[in-house]
Design a protein around this nucleic acid. Sequence first.
DNA 1: ATAGGGTTAG
Length: 767
Amino acid sequence: MDLWLGVEIHACLIKRGFVLDLYLNSALINFYGSCWGIESANQAFDEMPDTEDPLWNEIIMANLRNERWMEALELFRDMNMSGGKVYGGTIVKVLQTCVKMGALNEGKQIHGFVLRCGLEFNLSICNSLISMYSKNYRLELARIVFESMRDRNLSSWNSIISGYAGLGCLNDARNLFHEMEVSGVRPDIVTWNCLLSGHSLHGSYKEVLNILQRMQGVGLRLNSGSITSVIKAVIKLGFINMGKEIHGYVIRNVLDNDVYVGTSLLDMYVKNNCLTNARVVFNNMKNRNIFAWNSLISGYSYKGLFEDAEKLLSQMKKEGIKPDLVTWNCLVSGYSMWGCSKEALAVIHRIKSFGLTPNVVSWTALISGCSQNESYRDSFEFFIQMLEEGIKPNSATISSLLRTCAGLSLLQKGEEIHCLSVKDGFTEDVYVCTALIDMYSKSGKLKNAHKVFKKIQNKTLASWNCMIMGFAIYGFGREVISLFDEMCGVGVQPDSITFTAILSGCKNAGLVDEGWKYFDGMSMYYNIIPTIEHYSCMVDLLGRAGYLDEARDFIRNMPLKPDATIWGALLGSCKIHNNIEYAEFAVKKLFELEPHNSANYVLMMNLYAISNRWEDVKRVKDLMGVLGVKNLQVWSWIQIDCKIHFFSAEGKPHPDAGEIYFELYNLVSEMKKLGYVPDISCVYQNIDEVEKDKVLLSHTEKLAITYGLMKMKSSTPIRVIKNTRMCTDCHTAAKYMSLVRNHEIIIKDGIRFHHFRGGKCSCNDCW
DNA sequence: ATAGGGTTAG
């Protein structure tokens, strides 16, 4: 309609004194809404003296057509209050709006309106109510509507099944599906797709494939909706060959014009690292939307191909498609996870210059990248910046921060974040809880980890794995095994990570027979092929327990090529059992595989030193010099009253160093009275014994513990963290320290936790 | 005028 003509007609009508009746007003609203923007329609409506039912109807529909969802809901409420009525079709549309807006209360009021108007047996309205309630997570209310219906049609069944499936109540969904067939209603493609998407959304990927087979069994042709759900499952299962078959099906059945299918396929190839195929799909897409661009950009970005990603970005701008937050965030997370936090931060600034505001995802990507790359300081810095910009953290942010705390074993910081998560209402969030388990168990508070674990309502595989790993770190073998049994008992299928946790539990607890049982069982009963990590656990387990010959045979017979972790495990065992012959064999391989890892050289020198083979010590030391191998910086740290105190061998001495050494001398003489003998074999310099005693005293963990004993109440356990493995002497010394001062001491070294109390350590095979 | 299934970022 001609804009000005319409306005002229309106003016003419008023001038001539026409009585604007219902139909004219209704037409006017329609005209203004579609030609002049919804504002003028709303204004025209406000100026109309009468608000009769058809007018309500028209104005609400006009707002809906213009995507003015909030206004539409408000108008509906006004209409309801003033006793007006609207058509069924409008009610359906408004209910759909409630779904879009998550407006449960408005939805309930509309339900009341429906009952008052006697529309409770209108099929479409009931179906919409079911959908509205279930999309707002209120299945019980959806069910009440469903049960109260006099007649049901296909859509009614589809709505209720979609509700249950969409929220992950898969058993109920399957039962309803069965009930539907029994009552004589034949499921159509949409019904099947509800099942598919429900299972694919909620992790029952294998079931997706079963459903797919059943669909083909009843001769159904898949449509684009089915394909997207199946692809999602294929991605999660990593069945790339099946994905390619589906791609073939798509091409044969000419489904490749569908944008959803295109982006799903694209996503599949991107997530499976087939960027070449992804590019082909992308190039062949008839109509690309922003999803397609974003998928490919994320693919390049995650692989660290930033040039390609940026090129694509400028191409998309050239084609007139405006990058959205997702586009930018793909770049942020790519840069950030490759350790380029500067570039990632720069992208955040670019977002601003494009008139968008970085959101919680942008910041969390940055923070999580820092935590993955062990730039722990940055991760807290960026968190503070994010808070300063007024962005509230969500569960993903909290989990990333907890990961940072876990990485540094920062118990107090971790507890702060825990408080924050409680304050912001994430106590039920399974991701946060799982990160808490990890943080607490890596910070020496296994009890708290277990407390969190027990409270989780719907534990994921990751929650189980973290808790099992927690027990494993402490060498609680029985708990590891019983937790595994419990997990299988409730029907959670273990994965490869579960077995890494179990095997390292057996390793730390010295459970050789059990270790064999699980190692053999994982491929036999659970169909999980052991990876190099599992083999390395077994070598460690056998070696530590003293079965060095068995460890050697195990390495000889393994089907994978032994890597540095394997030889490292053997070398560590040789150190425990003082076996120079095997150690030399292992270290020869290690010098080839990782010539710059100083730990191997140090361990070997240690072994030679114990046997007084000083020429060999010198030989290894010279080798280090020739190859330019730098000794790893050794650090210990302790947190006292929110401040972290670092102790290092090379760096700046602690400001209170004088007092600390004084205290340590006193302490050692008290310890000696109770039987402590310094273990000078831990010093591999060829110097006299008095000097060796001095060197032992300067070990960073001793200094940190002493400082803790000086500054902390004896009721608070001392927690010291060390970035490398602690030596035998420090281990013995810590036992005596805990005895002399009656103070609980917890040390986390590069390998595991040691819990000292009353002169004993919790671990059973420490050296 | 009428309901039900699907795609991208941490």
